[in-house]
Design a protein around this nucleic acid. Structure first.
Lengths: 168, 168
DNA sequence: CTTGGAATGTCAACAAAGCTGACATATTAT
DNA sequence: ATAATATGTCAGCTTTGTTGACATTCCAAG
């Protein structure tokens, strides 16, 4: 982990070697697999995929959100999202209501059944996140978040920031 | 939701709220998009995808690796990997040579052209990682890595650990 | 008020990349 | 000789991304 080949003074010099960066890249790749593994198992049982999880997560996060808003958060095409929403609506996990102010818009909510799946998925994902946080400690968590935030695209970070502190 | 088992951190009572964990989950999701965005643009120009990138990365990382070894690192089926390798070999980016000790095995190497693409991809990805690291600072980076490592599956972490310190 | 453009959402068809299962081939191990 | 292993391939299915075409709704200019 630490190449003691050089005195620690040069930490910031050694800090950004290609080797260090490569380790970060691989850590990101491998960790993301773990990050999605538990929800994926639950989803597979119900014949859903990650796209369903993402839709459910952000509908839960922002009840009544419109399709367009969800689109810009998820960063996919409306056709792709629509396919997922269609099955969730057909299966009774999501409810789509015509907008009152603007009847072109559809407002999305989780049904009770949808909320139950959301809980199952996020419980699984939180369990892993919690145990990683515990293993690493509070200081590490702060660093983790800082680096991730710095890694986002500008526009993405805006989405993240604006929903970051919204109370449940 | 928290346990207070560690009295030395009175912080840890507030620390692992669902809200904190949810922010971590969303940070992970949004950051991963940024993480892959730059290579994705390069790959799209050449009609390749992330699967090609991953193969190229780990062949570069472990020159002469066998198909089976690559399989266990990538965690996909041989059919899926084979499809990708076939195109990379056909396009002259990867070379497959019959093993000397065991002639059933194929050893994989990047050609000069393959190495050039690898450099383009990893330069792009490293640039983003570097700027995130710089923005966050050394302490944050250490925490980032700690949390990611704790988030991996056991088996995955083994792959990560065993190739972690291998010199270039 | 009408009409044309913009916004929003849906349907159809296609592509990338994952999966399973079956099977061929070559090689090694017993 | 036979069994096990490593690899490659074919066929077919699924998820989830893409573009293109189109319907509906709203708003604003005439």
């Amino acid at each position: 982990m630490n190449d003691g080949m050089h005195p620690q003074t040069g930490q910031s010099l050694l800090f950004l070697t290609d080797e260090q960066l490569r380790k970060g890249i691989e850590a990101m790749f491998f960790a993301y697999r773990g990050f999605t593994a538990d929800p994926d198992r639950i989803l597979a049982q119900k014949s859903y995929g990650r796209a369903h999880h993402r839709a459910i997560h952000f509908i839960h996060r922002s009840p009544g959100t419109t399709v367009n808003n969800l689109l810009s958060i998820l960063g996919v095409t409306k056709q792709s999202l629509n396919r997922v929403l269609r099955t969730l609506i057909a299966d009774g996990l999501v409810e789509s209501t015509v907008g009152q102010k603007d009847r072109r818009e559809r407002h999305l909510h989780l049904t009770e059944e949808g909320a139950a799946l959301e809980r199952a998925l996020s419980d699984a994902q939180r369990d892993r996140m919690r145990s990683a946080y515990r293993a690493a400690g509070p200081a590490a968590v702060a660093g983790f978040r800082q680096v991730l935030e710095a890694m986002m695209d500008e526009e993405t970070r805006h989405h993240y920031e604006t929903m970051k502190d919204k109370p449940e």
